[in-house]
């Protein structure tokens, strides 16, 4: 059984008052997320990430298609008992403290008073909220609210947790802590589905990712497959390289570009068509010395931009005259 499954999930929003037109926020999204996976749901702002999460949480209803969590239709109360959700830029009740908010949410899951006290205290420790736990939430910074948001999302020790931009508003230390928390959740067997437009988060955490753009699925798969998707060439770093030798290699097309690193040391970008060992041997014979050789592969960033570009081009042709985005 998949942890999350969507089939042709589609959401249109009416735009305009007198003659409403459909704005396609999500277009036929089909996804499977296995249990215990950390799944990254990537895309730029307005791609449909938040819409997808709202559909999975039944905060909006699909125009067509269906979605299941843990084999049950979304919105089923029995599913909500086993899931958690962090909305994007979470906001809570001004006059409650972090501790009171978590007590309130824990009570909705039917935790008894003693269990609640222990769970709330442990969770606030886990997300790094110390003495501030007794302050009213209106006095919290964005980063602190984000931590409270993460704590409330896992208050019920969920089997599947949905994080919408979990690193938003956090400082570097906070980001690292939340990454570690996500990995701990994974180690406990929890499925983590998180949306982000920050690729480094996905690179650090995800086993699989999906990339959405303009409401459509652009790519999905193992992160390692996507990273190995396209080899672009080699990066060769040489020391003691003569300018004349460098000019000659550049003129003959063996080097795309050279970046001076100082002290006659250069980082050379060598095209895929050139065998790097021969080139290095030639440079060494001219008195240079090898520092390093590394393959240059397409980064997730480049892959992401390429895919988004392709989907946007398709969408641009298909959606001439459609309403502009008003929300994700």
């Amino acid at each position: 059984m998949d942890a999350i499954r969507t089939e042709a999930l589609t959401k249109h929003y009416p735009v305009g008052f007198w003659r409403p037109r459909a704005y396609v926020a999500l277009d036929g999204l089909t996804l499977d997320v296995g249990q215990g996976e950390v799944f990254g749901f990537l895309g730029p702002n307005g791609a449909g990430k938040t819409t997808t999460l709202k559909l999975l949480m039944q905060l909006t209803f699909p125009t067509s298609g269906r979605a299941e969590i843990l084999g049950r239709p979304v919105g089923d109360v029995s599913v909500k008992r086993r899931t958690g959700y962090l909305p994007e830029n979470p906001y809570f009740y001004d006059y409650l403290s972090a501790e009171e908010l978590l007590h309130y949410f824990a009570s909705l899951f039917g935790y008894g008073a003693a269990d609640r006290r222990r769970r709330v205290s442990d969770l606030l420790d886990e997300v790094g909220i110390g003495a501030e736990r007794r302050l009213q939430l209106r006095k919290f910074s964005k980063g602190m609210l984000q931590r409270v948001g993460i704590a409330q999302a896992i208050i019920n020790d969920p089997e599947v947790v949905f994080f919408d931009e979990p690193m938003s508003g956090l400082d570097p230390m906070g980001r690292r802590e939340i990454r570690e928390l996500i990995l701990r959740l994974r180690d406990r067997g929890c499925t983590v589905f998180f949306s982000s437009h920050v690729l480094s988060d996905a690179e650090a955490l995800c086993s699989r990712v999906a990339i959405v753009a303009s409401g459509r699925l652009a790519a999905t798969g193992e992160l390692s497959e996507i990273l190995a998707f396209k080899a672009l060439g080699w990066e060769v770093v040489m020391g003691g390289l003569d300018d004349a030798v460098l000019e000659s290699a550049t003129a003959s097309g063996h080097i795309d570009r050279a970046t001076a690193l100082g002290g006659r040391r250069y980082a050379l970008h060598v095209p895929l068509s050139v065998a790097p060992d021969r080139l290095v041997a030639e440079f060494v014979s001219q008195g240079a010395e090898l520092v390093s050789v590394n393959p240059v592969r397409e980064t997730l960033e480049e892959f992401y931009m390429r895919k988004i570009g392709a989907v946007s081009r398709d969408r641009g042709l298909a959606d001439v005259g459609k309403a502009p985005a008003s929300s994700e």
């Binding site: 709202k54 029995s78 899931t83 909305p87 979470p90 906001y91 809570f92 909705l108």
Partner: peptide, 14 residues
């Protein structure tokens, strides 16, 4: 408006 409802409705309430 403040979106506090998002967290609340994700809990097991109708």
């Amino acid at each position: 408006e403040r979106r506090s409802i998002y967290s609340l409705l994700s809990k097991p309430i109708r």
